[in-house]
Computed example of a mutant assay.
Amino acid sequence: MTDSAVEFFDARALRLLEVPVPPLSSEERAAMDRFWEEAVARQPALFDGPAVACIAVENTGDELLLSWARVTYRYRALRRLETCSWLPASVFVTVLQPVEDGGLIVGRNSGSTASPGRWALPGGSAEPPAEDGTLDLAALRRHAAQEMVEEVGVTADPEDMAVWGVTRGEFGNIGVHFVAPPVTAGLAHKHHEALVEAEASRGAAAELDQLAVVRSAADVAALGHCADFLPQVVTRYNTQRTLPAA
């Protein structure tokens, strides 16, 4: 997919509605399980944990309604089918972490992740709440802040993180992007280095093995393999720092 296929939603508010998982035929389910087992054989670190699937998006202009369902990661294997009754789009969060002298922090996924070598903003797939819980904007904001701690080592108060925008990209994946208060590039690198060392000391690998600061789409292109939304997000950030989302 080229970055031109990434769509921005400029609604002023975001509402999330839980809906049932669309049914699969027996053939689709069998194929999904087979593809998932093949993926795990290639990359044993994969796990079939809980995930959020975007079922539908409705944009009224003032409000973006995102209908979602509880699935597991194996549902993404349905994307390999030539035809399927529904496309399992993912919901993920990212953090636009500005640095004080300009630019945004991006990281390269390590070999322990599902997309090794890919550059992206810090973030991750949204997780469904407990059965009696609610997936809302506050929950996504908390998850985004948690991803910053786990991937970069930088702590930010979720209440200080504003919704910057929502994108739809490859496979219909929905990204909810937050912007955090600025930090110095040196501080971000210092915290990340400490995080990498701490993970290595316990025999594990950090999710991001390298950080960089990007200030333009050209900077992104120079990095190589990157998330589909990244060039457009960086370009848009430079011209429109915040979106009026609630």
Rank of each mutant, 00 (worst) to 15 (best):
C84W: 01
V220W: 04
Y75C: 00
E150C: 04
G175M: 09
S90G: 05
G186R: 11
L64D: 00
L46Y: 04
D219M: 09
P158K: 13
A180C: 01
Y73P: 00
F171E: 04
H225V: 13
Y75W: 15
G103H: 05
P181K: 04
Q210W: 01
P23H: 10
S216M: 09
M148D: 01
Q97V: 02
A204W: 05
P122A: 07
A30G: 02
V19K: 09
R118V: 14
V233K: 11
M161Y: 08
H191K: 15
V196T: 13
V213Y: 07
L24Q: 02
A188M: 06
T155D: 09
V213Q: 06
V91H: 06
A69P: 00
A246M: 05
S201D: 14
L135Y: 06
V21T: 07
Y237H: 15
E58Q: 13
L17S: 03
T235A: 15
E28M: 08
G175H: 03
W86Q: 05
N173I: 05
F92S: 11
D48Q: 11
L66S: 00
P50L: 13
W36F: 12
C54G: 00
L17T: 10
D160M: 10
L24Y: 06
G153Q: 10
V183Q: 07
E18L: 06
D48E: 04
S25F: 10
A41Y: 09
G117V: 11
W68V: 14
L64N: 03
G169T: 01
A77V: 10
F171T: 03
A56G: 02
F8L: 14
E199I: 01
V57W: 02
S85N: 05
E159T: 13
V166G: 01
L137K: 06
R76Q: 12
Y237E: 03
L208T: 01
A204D: 05
D209R: 05
D3K: 08
A138W: 11
N59S: 14
V214C: 02
A245P: 00
V99H: 11
Q43W: 07
V6Q: 04
H143S: 13
F35D: 01
G123D: 06
H189V: 09
G172I: 02
G102A: 03
E151H: 05
S26H: 08
V166P: 01
A126E: 02
